[in-house]
C-alpha cells in the first residue's frame, strides 16, 4: 500500500475514534514526541498530555473536513506537539531555547492550534453550562443528545409517563442550557 493511502486510512479511522487507528498513530509517533518533551524540561506525563492534545488537534482538523495532509503525518504531529509545548513553556515563563534535532520536521501549524484553543474554550463553556443545569436535566440531555437514546427509552428510564412529557422536560432543560451557554459564550467572545 502506498504511504499516502495508508495515512488517509489512518485519518479516516481517527475521525471515527477507532482505537486500532489510534493505536497505530500512537505507536509510530509517541516516542519521538516524548523525547522532544523529556529533553526539554518536561516529564513523561507532560509528554502524554501534549501528545494527546496534538492528536485531538489532528482529529478536529480531520473532522472539520477538507483536511489535506501536505506533509507526512509524523511531521504534522511533531510540529503541533512542539508548538503546544513551546506555548506551555512560555506560560510557565521558563524561556529555555527548545533544543530539537528535527528542525526540518517543523511546519507552520499556528492556525490549527489557535482554532483548537478556541474550540477547547467552547468545550469548557459547554461543560460548565451542563454542570450548572443540575439533575435530572444533565442526564436527560446527555441521554438524548450524546448517547442518542430515543425519547421512548428516556421516558421509560427517567420515569415519565410518556414520551411527550419527557420531550417537554427536555426542552425545558435545553432552554436553560441554552441561556447559560450563550451568556458565557458571548462573554468569552467579547
Amino acid at each position: 500500500m502506498k504511504p499516502e493511502t495508508q495515512e488517509t486510512l489512518l485519518l479516516e479511522g481517527l475521525a471515527k475514534s477507532d482505537s486500532k487507528a489510534i493505536e497505530t498513530i500512537y505507536k509510530e509517533n509517541y516516542n519521538l514526541v516524548q523525547s522532544l518533551i523529556v529533553n526539554n524540561s518536561g516529564t513523561t506525563d507532560d509528554a502524554k498530555d501534549i501528545f494527546q492534545e496534538a492528536i485531538v488537534v489532528l482529529y478536529e482538523k480531520v473532522k472539520s473536513g477538507g483536511f489535506e495532509l501536505n506533509c507526512q503525518l509524523k511531521t504534522y504531529i511533531y510540529s503541533v506537539s512542539r508548538r503546544l509545548w513551546l506555548k506551555k513553556l512560555a506560560q510557565q515563563q521558563s524561556r529555555f531555547p527548545l533544543s530539537d534535532h528535527h528542525e526540518d520536521l517543523s511546519i507552520v501549524v499556528e492556525d490549527d492550534i489557535e482554532e483548537h484553543e478556541q474550540r477547547d474554550m467552547e468545550f469548557k463553556t459547554m461543560d460548565q453550562a451542563i454542570q450548572q443545569i443540575g439533575e435530572p436535566c444533565k442526564s436527560l440531555l446527555e441521554a438524548f443528545y450524546m448517547q442518542k437514546k430515543t425519547m421512548q427509552e428516556i421516558a421509560y428510564n427517567f420515569g415519565y409517563t410518556n414520551a411527550d412529557n419527557a420531550k417537554t422536560q427536555k426542552y425545558k432543560c435545553l432552554t436553560r442550557l441554552k441561556k447559560l451557554f450563550f451568556t458565557q459564550y458571548k462573554n468569552d467572545s467579547l
Binding site: 482505537s19 489510534i22 500512537y26 505507536k27 492528536i55 485531538v56 482529529y59 473532522k63 468545550f123 441554552k178
Partner: peptide, 26 residues
Amino acid sequence: LLIHQLDSLDKNKKLKRVLNNVHIDL
C-alpha cells in the same frame, strides 16, 4: 450550534478516553 456543541463535546470526551486507554495499553 448548541446541538453541534453537545455532540462534539461528547465525541471529544470519547476520543480522550480512547487515547488514554491506548496509551496505557501500549
